[in-house]
Every structure is written in C-alpha cells, then in structure tokens.
Nucleic acid binder design. Structure first.
Length: 581
RNA sequence: GGCCCCGUAGCUCAGCGGAUAGAGCAGUAGCCUUCUAAGCUAUUGGUCGCAGGUUCGAUUCCUGCCGGGGUCGCCA
C-alpha cells in the first residue's frame, strides 16, 4: 500500500466532486508528498494551488473547500490550510498500522509499481569494445545500466538488457592479427608485438587455443584465409572475458547484439538506408567543417548524409566513409531501427562521458526510423576518478596497462563497487576512494545500509534467545497488536517505510537509480536511531522479555524495515547480509 | 568557436516547480554494567556561481554571462 498514491486519489476525487468542470490532465499535475517540515503534518498537497488559477478562484478558498471534504474521512485527524494554499493532513495512527501490515503481506513485492504497464523497454549498456577485458572506465556505466534495468523492472516494465557488440570495425581485424601473433608464439616462434597491435597478455591463451585447435595449419595460409577464422575465435574469447568480468558484478545481459550481422548484402544497414532514402531522409551533399577547429586532414567532398538536423541534431551526419564502407553511425541507425522493429517503443542507452556529443544524433536516428513513435533516453555516466586517501590513484599494473574492472572488484567487492557508484547522480563526475569503500564505519554508506539490514536479523536472533516461548513466525507476528506502536518513534519509522513505493516511482520515472540508494541510507539511519533510543528508554527496545505483546509488535516493525531494505538493495543489485563478518 | 555535463555549508554531495534549502565528513559538546559504540544525540556552518525572464511561487524551468570538465566529419 502506498499512502501517497492513496491520498492522491482521494484528493482527486474531492476535486472532481467539487469542480466537475476540471479537465483530467490538470488532476494529474498536483502531488501529495511528505511536507518538508514534519511539524506540518504527515502529508501535504499543492492541489489547490494547481487548480486555483484555471478555476479563477483563490487558492486558499479552494484549499479550504478540499479540506472540508476530508471532515468525514476516518483516516484523517486534521486537514489544515497553510501558507499560500497547501493542505496539510494529519493521519490517524491506524492507517500507519495498515501500511505496516501491508509491507509484510506484500513482502518482496512491497514497492513494486505498475507505471510501466508491462511495456517493453530496451536498456543498452556496457557495449564495451570486444578487444580485451573490461577496464575500470566501463564500470560505472555497467552498474548504472544494470540498476536502472532492475529499477524499471520493479516499476512494471518488461525490460530487455542488451549489449551491442562492436565487432565490425577494423579494430577487430587488428585484434585478430594480434591473436595470430600469439598463435605463432604458441607454435614456438619468438614474436614481437608491433605498435598498433594489441599487446595484452590476455591474448596469449587465445593463441594457445588456436594452436591446439589448428596446430600449424593456419601458419602459412594467406591472411584472407585465416583472418575470418581467427577473428571469430578471438571475438568469442573476448566476449567470454567480458561476460566473466560482468558476472563478477552480477551483471547479465539478455541479448548480445552483433554489429556484424547488420552489415553485408541485404543486411539491416542496406535495408534501413534504402528505407530512409525512400522517406527522403538521405541526400548527397557537402558538410561545413566543424566551427572553430578544422581538422588537419579535412577534405571537402560530396557524401551521403542523413538529415539529422531535421530531427534536432546540429548538422547532418555522414553515412558512408571515403573508402565506401559504412560509418559507425550508419550501423547504429540500422541497429536502432532493428530495436524498433523488435517492438521497443522505449529505449535507453547508457554511454560514457566521451559520447555526450552522440546524444542528439541517436535521438534523431530513433525519431526518424520510428517516425516519431519511439523514444530514446541517452544517459551519460560521467568520469570516475580513482582515489586513495584523497589522492588520485593509479594502480600499478605491469606495462602501464589500464586498471581493469576485475582489479577494482577484487579489491573492494561487488557490493561496495555497485553501491558507491550508485550513490551519486550519473551525470556528475565522481571520485571513488578505495580506502573509504573498504572502511566499515558510518562514513561508508554501503556498510551503513548493510549493517542496518544485518541488525534486523540480529534482533530476531536475540528475540529467539531471550524469549524462547514467543512465537516469532511471520504468521504469528501478523496477529500482533500494532496499536502498541503508537509512540512518535514508532510512527516516524513507519512513515519512512511508507515512502518506499513513491521513491520507486519517482526514481523509475526519472531514470535515476541513485534515489534508491539515498532512500536506503535514510531508512537505515532512521532504524539505527530507533535502535539507540532503546538504550535510554527500555520501552523503546525491540525485545522486551517482560512484554511479549509489545515485542511482537516491534518485531513486525523490524521485519518491515528488513523487507524495505532488502527490496531496495535487491533493486540496486547489492546483497543484504544477515550478519556482518 | 559549436555542442553536452557540472557549479548548493570548509570538504564530498542530496534536493521530486512550493512553506524557515538538507545529509555525511571535518569542528565543538555528550552517550559503552542493558537488543552489535561497526552505533547514537546535540550543535556550529549558506548572498543555492552572477544577471535577467516565465510563474501566485524558482536552488529547480528559459536566456545570457563567468568558472571547471568532456567532446567536435571519414574512431568505435
């Protein structure tokens, strides 16, 4: 149950009966939320101020009319008009007990929303080039995309997690040639890796595997013969590496889409370009050089251009390179048309900061290929600076390699990596401090939230030990007398738990999983605070050996806290341990 | 030069068009015979970068400027 949604409906009903002439879209614009100042009550709405002007009435007058409608509502203790036209509600305690009971009843589904109405969403994330293991720069986008996908699932969308494999460019030929050198090495030759090739040691096992499979049979063939074979084996090996890296962070995609399959005769690129041509979205023309800074090798030439500027982009974009092959963007248009034809009307791409210039192009492409029927939201993850004790930090990898994703995860663990990266808005650059992340103190939000969850379990362990005769099964607790939870401390905690559903909705609508992380921190803080109150006031302890009824009710509260924390951590893909080691 | 992101307390950052702008850290003062002190309580600290505009109401939306970062046809 979501009290905020419930009262949004009740206020809307009041408005409809008072002012039947109000258009429905206006009724969707007001909000019911917790007031910033708790002294103002439990709920607050700006409804009167939203509708007053269209009605040609005074906001306070409208507010007071709405407030009067709640005179007979048994859940409402008072409805007062305040300030410029807010209505502040104080609710009677029983509705909070209903919330509490509903949390336990709904369990893992508490907070699940239906704003997606089962519609299909494609979330494309990671899509790292298949030329080696993932490096640390990919981590933020990977975690963000994965958490966003989970969040949208929880909010009622049918989510497909997709990875676009850039396996068509010249870089994968270079990769295959590099692997071929390792193959020769495995056959016993002494080889050097020239500049421009991939020197990484991760290709050594690929070379060995090729040597085992083909022995010397590829060695003296023409490149045209061995390249396709080596490329296929190498790509498969690289994708295995990447999938293993992602698995360390508990990330698993539903679809791995190969760019290569778009190319070739009769492929998606050809059919898409033909279609665009028919629609008049392609023309042959010339581009101005970029303003302010002309590339040294700028060559003015007539080329095939997509009318991106008609769809909000700054300039039209080339589709064919001077050597006649397709640009990356041409393939991307085809790829997004493919998504559209697979039925996706909502698409999300998670990209790195260096791709911000690509956003308008993608939006233009999706707009064009769907004739406006689909939308894409491109989320940019800004840079992460690795830090140690406040100093920028470079991991000392042999031969100055990039820091790998697996290095980070092995150092700090999946939970901490995920939570810390999600405890920031995606569009702000952030520092990632290794020392802090490994600390087990309140400074470290991951630990703080997990500790709160572990504490809920510890309460139950203590209850079982101190009160062996008490039945603390969920069924027994469901019969607890919740009216015993009428202290301000109890109600305050329940109010925070009651905000979980609206937090999910807001975060999902905004595509902002960090809101979940912040909410969890807040809920954990409220629970830790309640815990400490028991030190001074024994009647506020969760386990009271001489008061079994109160203990039962409190255990309900603790179980609800655990459920909310657990549901939230699940959305973020962070584990909820029962005990901290 | 064009485009994108950021600018909120000493530091790191939240803030969903609303009321007196919040949290953590750091600082200050407290709390361990009692459910995990791996924690809690109180308190100091702000011209929300600057200037306009829209609005009943702007930290939030729009425009311009200033400062920081990123990016800029035929790389992916």
């Amino acid at each position: 149950m979501d009290v905020f949604a419930e009262f949004t409906a009740r206020v809307a009903a009041a408005l409809r009966s008072l002012y039947p002439e109000l258009p429905e879209d206006l009724l969707a614009r007001f909000v019911v939320e917790p007031p910033r100042d708790p002294a103002h009550g439990d709920l607050s709405t700006n409804a009167a101020m939203i509708v007053a002007k269209p009605l040609g009435r005074n906001p306070r007058e409208v507010a007071s009319a709405i407030a009067q409608k709640f005179a007979g509502d048994s859940d409402v203790a008072s409805a007062e008009v305040a300030g410029p036209g807010f209505i502040n509600f104080r609710l009677n305690a029983p509705i909070w007990f209903d919330v509490l009971a509903s949390i336990l009843r709904e369990g893992d589904d508490y907070g699940r929303a239906d704003i997606g109405r089962g519609e299909a969403v494609n979330v494309e994330y990671v899509s790292a080039n298949p030329t080696g293991p993932m490096h640390v720069g990919h981590t933020r986008g990977a975690v963000f995309g994965d958490a966003l996908a989970s969040l949208l699932q929880f909010a009622g969308y049918a989510v497909t997690r997709e990875y676009y494999i850039n396996d068509a460019g010249s870089q994968v030929d270079t990769l295959a040639r590099s692997a071929f050198l390792r193959y020769r090495e495995a056959l016993g030759e002494v080889v050097e890796i020239p500049r421009g090739f991939y020197p990484g040691e991760y290709l050594i096992p690929v070379g060995k595997a090729l040597a085992e499979e083909f022995a010397g049979s590829l060695r003296w063939k023409d490149e045209a013969e061995w390249l396709p074979v080596v490329k296929e084996r190498t790509l498969a090996a690289m994708m295995d590496l990447i999938k293993a890296d992602l698995a360390q962070l508990n990330i698993h995609h539903d679809v791995f889409f190969s760019e290569k399959t778009l190319h070739g005769e009769g492929g998606d690129i050809e059919t898409t370009l033909a279609w665009l041509r028919d629609e008049g979205m392609i023309y042959e023309g010339r581009l101005e050089p970029p303003k302010g800074k002309t590339p040294d090798d700028w060559e003015d030439r007539e080329q095939t251009l997509f009318r991106a500027s008609q769809y909000g982009d700054d300039v039209d974009r080339p589709l064919v390179k001077s050597d006649g092959s397709y640009t990356y963007f041409a393939a991307d248009i085809a790829y997004h048309r493919n998504k559209f034809l697979r039925g996706f009307r909502h698409m999300i791409n998670v990209l790195g900061a260096d791709h911000s210039g690509y956003i308008k192009r993608l939006e233009a492409a999706v707009n064009a290929v769907s004739l406006g029927a689909a939308e894409i939201d491109v989320r940019i993850c800004q840079l992460v600076r690795l830090m140690k004790n406040g100093e920028p930090f470079k991991m000392s990898k042999r031969s100055g390699d990039l820091v790998l994703l697996s290095d980070v995860v092995e150092e700090v663990g999946s939970d901490a990596t995920r939570f810390m990266l999600l405890y920031r808005r995606n569009d702000a650059a952030m520092d990632f401090d290794f020392a802090l992340v490994k600390e087990q103190t309140r400074d470290n939000p991951v630990f703080y939230v997990q500790y709160a969850h572990a504490r809920t379990h510890s309460v139950f362990r203590n209850a079982a030990q101190d009160m062996p005769d008490l039945d603390i099964s969920p069924a027994a607790l469901a019969r607890a007398d919740l009216t015993l939870l009428s202290t301000p401390a109890d109600l305050e905690l329940i109010r925070i738990l009651a905000q979980w559903p609206r937090t999910v909705v807001a975060a999902a609508l905004a595509h902002e999983p960090h809101r979940i992380a912040f909410y969890l921190y807040e809920a954990a803080a409220a629970f830790h605070a309640f815990w400490a109150k028991g030190k001074e006031e024994s009647s506020l302890r969760f386990v009271n050996a001489d008061r079994p009824s109160l203990t039962e009710a409190r255990l309900m509260l603790v179980a609800a806290v655990r459920q909310v924390l657990s549901n939230g951590l699940r959305v973020l893909g962070v584990s909820a341990p029962e005990e901290l080691s």
